[in-house]
């Protein structure tokens, strides 16, 4: 296995170099996606399946899709500048690398971190999987703020450019549409499964949300417009972006009022509340990530477009 790990490490370094040094933007993106998959493999080898799932789904999959969507909107470009090798940066980063190696040798190898502490409190946490217990209970405030970060990233994107649908290529035939149709139930199933499994095993809202978002991305690729269910009002969409965060902190405030502290739950209800929060968080994450990819066609944008056309 040592050989495999060594090869994996070298491959990761090589791909990272290629992704940053390539002159062709498209090639950089493709290599970046491959890099994400290799890093996910590395997480598996480090016995961190949660991180592996997140890296594969978000770091490689959706980030890659976002990069490609951006690429489709800008002029094809290659970077023809002659690149000077910067000794100062090379020095800074090799210094950092050497320092990290030394630090790695110094830090206790059998360090358990807070694992004992976490295991001791699992019975009161409402969920059995330690990662989920940390994310949704012990350090719920971090996770709530991460949901806010994701929402604000999308608000920022909206602020900068109202129309950011990818530039789709015309498709012949209906292969992709059929594929999307077949995939939809599977995506829903896998998303729900990952969410449900998070209580006891690796999985949870971020991974489930990413899988659902991937399904929505495939839908918008196949039909060349963002997914919209029926005639739902814009308000429903906007609420879906912030619903996860606000439900989370509202329950946190109830905790404050009930005397278990801000962002705390009464232990007896913890399991149910966490599941409720995770469901809403999953939906928020899915719709936020999908909106970042395919844009959100609200009535305002549509109106301004038809104004321009007329």
């Amino acid at each position: 296995m040592l050989v495999f790990d060594g090869l994996l490490a070298l491959l990761i370094l090589g791909l990272a170099w290629r992704a940053t040094s390539s002159r062709d933007l498209f090639e950089s993106i493709v290599v970046f996606i491959a890099l994400g998959l290799m890093i996910a493999l590395a997480w598996v080898r480090l016995s961190a399946p949660d991180a592996a799932l997140a890296e594969a789904a978000i770091g490689s999959g959706l980030a890659g899709a976002l990069l490609l969507a951006t690429w489709s909107r800008i002029e094809p470009q290659t970077d023809d500048r002659v690149r000077a090798f910067s000794w100062s940066w090379a020095l800074v980063f090799s210094g950092l690398a050497v320092g990290l190696l030394l630090a790695f040798a110094q830090i206790p190898a059998d360090g358990q971190g807070m694992m004992d502490e976490v295991q001791a409190h699992i019975p009161q946490a409402g969920v059995a999987h330690p990662v989920t217990a940390v994310l949704l209970n012990f350090r719920a405030w971090d996770t709530a703020l991460e949901l806010a970060v994701l929402a604000w990233a999308w608000f920022a994107q909206q602020a900068l450019n109202r129309d950011h649908t990818p530039r789709y290529q015309a498709l012949d035939g209906e292969v992709l549409q059929t594929f999307a149709k077949w995939l939809t139930p599977l995506v829903l199933l896998v998303g729900a499964y990952l969410l449900w499994r998070g209580a006891t095993e690796p999985g949870g809202a971020f991974q489930a949300g990413a899988v659902l978002a991937a399904g929505l991305v495939i839908y918008s690729l196949a039909y060349q417009h963002p997914w919209r269910a029926g005639r739902l009002n814009d308000w429903v969409w906007r609420l879906s972006w912030v619903g996860g965060f606000w439900l989370f902190v509202m329950i946190g405030l109830v905790g404050l009022a009930m005397g278990v502290g801000f962002m705390g739950y009464p232990p007896a209800q913890a399991g149910g509340l966490i599941l409720l929060i995770e469901i809403c968080a999953t939906l928020s994450i899915a719709f936020l990530l999908a909106a970042m990819f395919s844009g959100h066609r609200d009535t305002e944008t549509l109106a301004s477009k038809s104004n321009k056309e007329s």
Binding site: L171, D172, G173, V175, L176, F179, W182
Partner: peptide, 12 residues
């Protein structure tokens, strides 16, 4: 399934 769909797209 996905290989078939994706290679169809690339081929197209």
């Amino acid at each position: 399934l996905s290989a078939a769909a994706v290679s169809h797209l690339i081929g197209q």
